[in-house]
Computed example of a mutant assay.
Amino acid sequence: MRTPRDTRASTCNPVHVSPAGTTAVIPDDDETSSRRRILNATAEVLARSGQTKLSLSEVALQAGVSRPTLYRWFASKTELLDAFGAYEREMFDTGISRATAGLRGTDKLDAALQFIVSYQQTYSGVRLIDIEPEVVIAQLDRILPLMRTRLQRLLSGPNAEIKAATAIRVAISHYVVRSDDAHQFLAQLRHAVGIKQ
């Protein structure tokens, strides 16, 4: 039987993406349930306090676990933030996979774009820019190429790289200056990748 520390390296639990684009993790055993609650609580605490002021005590309280339970999974703030970053990427990737399952070509690409819009507008963790813009801007250097590469996989043709880069820049601009119009956001992403309206 693996210890909680060994489990950290494994993949996270399945994520259910509702038609509205919100995510909910499917429950499983008590051990990984505690870990998952801690990671979900981290999103809520980050949305209030940011990374710099993140308190492990506040995360434990939000998750409804004791501090020793939190420390059993994450020995430090850095460890928690690293795990949370991986968890967020997995939630996003799982959401995209579910949104595009069984689709091909333009339908698959369009479903991915719809998921991006919905994700940015419903997930509380994505508003860290409001609290710590300097932290987010510093991370964009690493995040932009990853996002571009993931979207480019859904594109074809000689301009796939340019289309993916343009769409991701549009998405980032809507993230930095929050979009209040999901239809415009989606229309701009569709235009960037060449999907006819």
Rank of each mutant, 00 (worst) to 15 (best):
H174C: 14
A171D: 05
T7M: 12
D130G: 01
D130P: 12
Q51M: 15
Q114C: 07
V193R: 13
D6A: 10
R148G: 05
V17P: 04
A9D: 13
F92L: 13
N40G: 05
E134N: 10
V25H: 03
Q139C: 15
T69E: 08
S49T: 08
S57Y: 10
N159R: 11
S34K: 04
E79P: 04
A138Q: 09
S124Y: 12
D107E: 08
S124H: 05
T22F: 02
R98G: 00
D181A: 11
G194S: 00
L146P: 02
R36E: 15
I168F: 07
I137C: 14
R190L: 08
Q152Y: 01
H174T: 10
S55R: 09
G102M: 01
S57G: 11
P19C: 08
I168P: 11
A182T: 06
R98K: 03
T122Q: 09
H183M: 07
T11E: 10
Y175F: 15
V170D: 06
Q120F: 05
L80Q: 13
E31W: 12
S124G: 03
S118P: 00
S66W: 03
L151E: 12
V17A: 05
H183A: 14
I131D: 04
A86C: 13
L151T: 02
T23E: 04
T166A: 06
V170T: 02
E90W: 10
T94K: 15
D28V: 15
R148T: 15
Y87Q: 02
H16F: 15
L154H: 03
A83W: 11
K77I: 12
L54N: 03
F84T: 00
I38K: 02
E132M: 12
R5C: 01
V177F: 12
L80H: 00
A182Y: 00
L113K: 07
P133T: 12
D30R: 14
R169I: 03
T106N: 09
I38W: 03
D28K: 15
S97W: 01
F74D: 08
R67V: 07
I172Q: 01
Q139K: 14
E132K: 12
I143H: 13
T3A: 14
I143S: 09
G85V: 01
R5Y: 07
A60Y: 00
I137R: 06
D180K: 15
H191D: 08
A101I: 01
I172N: 09
F115V: 01
D93G: 10
T106V: 14
Q121H: 07
M1D: 10
G85F: 02
R190P: 07
L54G: 02
R153F: 06
I129R: 04
I137K: 11
I131V: 14
S55V: 01
F84L: 12
S33N: 07
L56D: 06
N159G: 14
A111I: 06
S34L: 13
